[in-house]
Design a protein around this nucleic acid. Structure first.
Lengths: 131, 131
DNA sequence: TGTCAGGTTGACGTTTACGTCAACGTCAGG
DNA sequence: CCTGACGTTGACGTAAACGTCAACCTGACA
């Protein structure tokens, strides 16, 4: 007998706890079309894919993506399996734009981090100059 | 005679145009204590330092810093010139925390960018598999 | 001397991303 | 059977970051 694989599903409360958000947040994301967990009767049932998707969403939020931007990206995860050349091409194009945008944000972040370090250096200089 | 240095000052409208924001935004930032331009009578007069500060503010916004986080950082620019050991030390400590936070955001951004590229790769794969 | 562009301060409206509360169903335990 | 912990759907409240509008002043120009 193979060892049973993990539970593989979560309730809203469980997943919210694990991800460090409230159940309200998860329900809101669903209402906004960011996720669509299965249902057991009326209750939400999240699986590994939902969980991965939510991690992606929350990661995006942490560096300033809006929910609509995020919605577009996670939507592309599904669209990338398309079979229509035209659609794949426009998708690819858009992904390029998004990548460029993210790279620009990286630059902004890096510069800000550099400036923060400069201020810290100035502090250290001042400190060594004091008795 | 030395060549005259540039105007060196801006009105709200001029600076807003240059920075790509509205005058309302600049006034709002002032009300929130992020900048304090000089006045000519009642009219705001921004100099190079104000402009640099605003650039810093807007850069921070682009990767998800809130105005209160930004306010704290730009405030430190002024505090770093302090002469009190105790204050410099707490400032340095806080700057370390901020740097750590920014590095965490960098990680989140990098991972998201990597995932976006993976999706793009999947698109390209699908495209080559088609006639 | 109008008038017109651009400045000023309130004051209220709007969007985003949830928080909070009410009213209800459901299932396990005492 | 009843309570308590969890789930459900509305509906309304809220903080942040501005947008919008009114009512006003001011200097330049025909």
């Amino acid at each position: 007998m193979p060892t049973r694989t993990e539970a593989a599903t979560w309730t809203v409360g469980e997943l919210a706890d694990e991800l460090g958000v409230t159940t309200r947040t998860l329900r809101f994301y669903e209402a906004e079309g960011l996720i669509a967990p299965a249902r057991s009767g009326t209750a939400r049932v999240y699986d590994h894919r939902d969980r991965a998707r939510l991690r992606l969403i929350l990661r995006g939020k942490r560096f300033g993506m809006s929910l609509s931007e995020i919605r577009e990206i996670v939507g592309m995860y599904d669209g990338a399996a398309s079979s229509e050349r035209k659609q794949l091409e426009t998708l690819l194009d858009r992904l390029g734009q998004i990548a460029d945008d993210l790279k620009a944000r990286q630059q902004d972040l890096a510069r800000t981090l550099a400036e923060v370090r400069e201020v810290a250096d100035r502090c250290r200089d001042r400190l060594t100059e004091l008795p």
